[in-house]
Simulated assay, not measured.
Amino acid sequence: MDTIPITPELLRGALDLERTAHGLLPHRLPARARAQCADPQLAMAESQPSGVRLVFRTRATTVELDALPTKRVYVGAPPRPDGVYDLLVDGRPAGSGRVAGGSTLTVDMAAGTTEHRPGPVGTLRFAGLPGAVKVVEIWLPHNETTELVALRTDAPVEPVPDQGGRVWLHHGSSISHGSDAASPTTTWPALAASLGGVDLINLGLSGSALLDPFTARTLRDTPADLISVKLGINLVNTDLMRLRAFGPAVHGFLDTVRDGHPGTPLLVVSPILCPLHEDTPGPSLPDFSALSEGRLRFRAAGDPAEKASGKLTLGVIRDELARIVRERAADDPHLHLLDGRELYGEADAAELPLPDGLHPDAAAHRRIGERFAALAFAPGGAFTDTAA
């Protein structure tokens, strides 16, 4: 087995690579953006490599990857399964695996504290691959910070050149990040990208779709043929702003994106249905009674009467996003709106309820991905729009 240097040419979906004591840590926000916010939630989310994958051409029949994952443990909650690595060969699923060991981040939601404990590097191994020349993709766990330590194969490896396909740049919350999806290729954006035949850069940032200017600048500066922003739920979760601030913040966010992509198809997606917060403001807080029973659930801690003072609910946000897009579209013909309830609405909530009150499960991720592809990539959809 030969050790293959892990270079930027072998990685897709990451916007920055940090050299660590162990190897390379992919980031989904550039260093300048990370330096502008000390929020540990954002730091954890952007370092979890949702949509990041190793891609190379080879005749190798055996591929090994040494990695150092960081596993999350929530005090009082059931153990989380190890992160999944998906293998694609010539674009088709060819296996999956997990890496044992790794470091541990213990989160005490009641106390609001975390503890990091270092752990050992583990090895992922795929064997019995066809010996012909093929394109191999290893999708890293979408929900597990992963340092890449070493890549080994039993045949030479070469980067896959750009085939000239379209790049889809997407930003959203934990739902876009992939919370509760089964694996990295089955998050709803990964599924939609596969169905749409596009190359995904996923800036779904769990708990962190907060209209941050540095995120808007990242979208502005990242080359893309298609862009979507899914906005709303995290602003309610965190109870971050009121209606007076929300509208101008959305305008400013879109203005910044347009500074770098003046004619690119830009799709604004409002929140999917979330019964907790349709008419009740945030914040979202852990339901500690459920936690004591070994279940992780959330509750809405706001009061519906507070809407009168400008507190945000999902209904308020959908109305405001629709107004903003309608008004801007008069001068921006490549700006589009998708009501998130077309992806997951009342009938879906009855059939596939959100297990913890906030996040769709694996089946709902598949449904959302398929519907997004049908709406955005189908004839007449926002992503069939031709940029000016």
Rank of each mutant, 00 (worst) to 15 (best):
P223T: 07
T222M: 12
A249H: 09
M109Y: 07
G247L: 11
V107D: 10
L254R: 02
T384C: 11
P40Y: 13
L291N: 14
D39R: 03
A329G: 06
A245M: 06
W139D: 00
E115F: 01
L358N: 02
S289N: 14
L266Y: 01
L273W: 11
A190M: 12
A216H: 01
T70W: 05
D2S: 14
R34P: 06
T113S: 01
A245K: 00
P379Y: 03
P141H: 03
L243T: 01
T3C: 13
L337F: 15
E370G: 10
D279A: 15
A181I: 02
T386A: 14
R323S: 08
G112M: 11
T264A: 12
R98P: 03
H251M: 10
G204H: 04
T218Q: 02
L343N: 05
V198N: 06
D221L: 09
F253D: 03
R297S: 09
P161G: 14
T386F: 12
D239R: 03
A60L: 15
R367Q: 00
H170C: 13
D86K: 05
G101Q: 00
P8T: 11
L200I: 14
L296V: 03
F253H: 06
A245C: 09
R28D: 01
T70M: 10
R244M: 02
R297A: 13
T7V: 12
S228W: 02
A378S: 06
R217A: 09
H334M: 15
F298V: 03
P161R: 14
I6R: 11
L25E: 02
A329D: 07
V149N: 03
M44Y: 12
A376P: 02
C274K: 00
G83A: 05
P26Y: 04
L296W: 05
L267E: 01
L273D: 04
V121G: 12
S96L: 15
P271C: 08
T123S: 03
L29M: 10
P223D: 07
A374T: 08
R328A: 08
W139P: 06
D225G: 09
S183T: 04
H359P: 06
R53W: 00
A21M: 14
T113Q: 10
R57N: 13
P271N: 04
P26L: 06
L10M: 11
R12N: 05
R366L: 11
T20P: 13
G131A: 09
P184H: 00
H277R: 05
H365F: 08
A209T: 02
G232W: 05
L358Q: 00
H142C: 01
I272Y: 00
H365A: 07
A77E: 13
P189Y: 09
P130Q: 15
S183Q: 05
A21F: 15
L68N: 01
G112A: 15
I4M: 08
V316A: 14
A301N: 01
V229K: 00
A127G: 10
V250E: 02
A182L: 01
E293T: 09
Q41I: 06
L285H: 04
T264K: 12
L17G: 07
A305Q: 14
K71V: 09
G165N: 13
R323W: 01
S194A: 12
G294H: 15
L273C: 13
